[in-house]
Design a protein around this nucleic acid. Structure first.
Lengths: 189, 189
DNA sequence: CTGTTTATTGACCGTTCGGTCCATAACGCC
DNA sequence: GGCGTTATGGACCGAACGGTCAATAAACAG
């Protein structure tokens, strides 16, 4: 019935996410986005309402990909013992070679305080990650060591460690130092 | 010999820091800064070279005040045992009632990657905080538990926890949950 | 082929951005 | 009181911002 869209909207969104991730919301200009997405202005505004809605869609994409991957890993009994899944996830942060940090964490700092919809998405992702850490703990050999309350708190502590690692990774901390932090955090679990 | 400046430059800078802290570098407009500093455009540009130099000066101010205060607390033998000084510092984050997070952490995420001078200041502050945590550990009753290397790593781990707490605090985590994270982090030290 | 619908492109819009400039004001010095 | 110097306030600047629009193109239905 009508002319079909010539670009893959998810692929374009992925590139947009890269720009927001690297530069933050305000510093990412329309020009930056258009170049990365390889489309023209008009096409962008046919596909998205405005800049903010691209950002929100990018957050959702991050949720569906990175966060979901992490949650799956933590919750998958076939990925080893609960504790070793946690370790695997944290070591993934350690190995983020381009040190981009965490889009979720960036959003929490630069937009969540001024945009309620960003705040809601950020909070939801954080709570899902926390819950996944808790699931992994519950499925570890040492699960018996923690009461339900204590397990929730421990999961939250690990999540806190995870966020810290993301910040330090973005700040250029070397792999070896990140590894030592992971070891210290998990030492007594 | 000449007309004296009518505003207190440090006080104005403190207000500018508040704006950058709350909104980030790009989102803080000249108008925002001028309103907060309560001066006119011309006066601002007599006192500072440009927007970026205000930001750098604000970072230095944060260093001289907040970071230095933290370092002093951690290093002060009269502030209790090393471990309890660490706990006091972390509980200060927990009690940050307006949940502003950490200007250092914000800068690490939103500007350090695109501005080498910001990056240098951020790295310097981070390393000083790390070192102060190490000092506090060294001066704790249980100092003997750690080799020098292990102490450095543990200090870095605590610093990582500190940064995570700052992010979570800015994200609105309730005091009680932050407290549980602190307890979990320090439990086995 | 014609008509309808929607995507593409880039010129164009008003606004806001960071930064400059200048007339005026407030000081110490002589 | 004049003079040199620096601060003040705000008009002003070009550039860049996010967003709109109209002409054109590409698809399908009839």
């Amino acid at each position: 019935m009508a002319r079909p869209r010539e670009f893959d909207i998810d692929e374009a969104l992925d590139h947009a996410m890269g720009v927001f991730w690297a530069k933050g919301y305000e510093a990412a200009s329309l020009q930056d986005l258009l170049s990365a997405m390889k489309i023209a202005r008009g096409s962008l505004y046919k596909a998205f309402k405005d800049k903010r809605s691209i950002y929100l869609a990018a957050l959702d994409l991050y949720d569906k990909t990175t966060v979901e991957t992490g949650v799956s890993l933590l919750s998958d009994p076939e990925a080893g013992d609960g504790l070793s899944r946690i370790r695997t996830l944290l070591e993934g942060v350690r190995d983020d070679e381009d040190r981009r940090g965490c889009f979720l964490c960036n959003a929490a700092i630069d937009q969540a305080r001024v945009d309620p919809e960003v705040e809601a998405r950020v909070a939801a992702m954080m709570r899902r990650l926390e819950a996944a850490f808790s699931t992994a703990l519950k499925q570890s050999k040492r699960a018996g060591r923690w009461s339900a309350k204590r397990r929730t708190e421990t999961a939250r502590f690990i999540f806190n460690t995870y966020m810290g690692l993301r910040v330090l990774a973005r700040s250029g901390y070397p792999t070896r130092e990140l590894q030592a932090i992971i070891d210290a955090a998990l030492r007594d679990l």
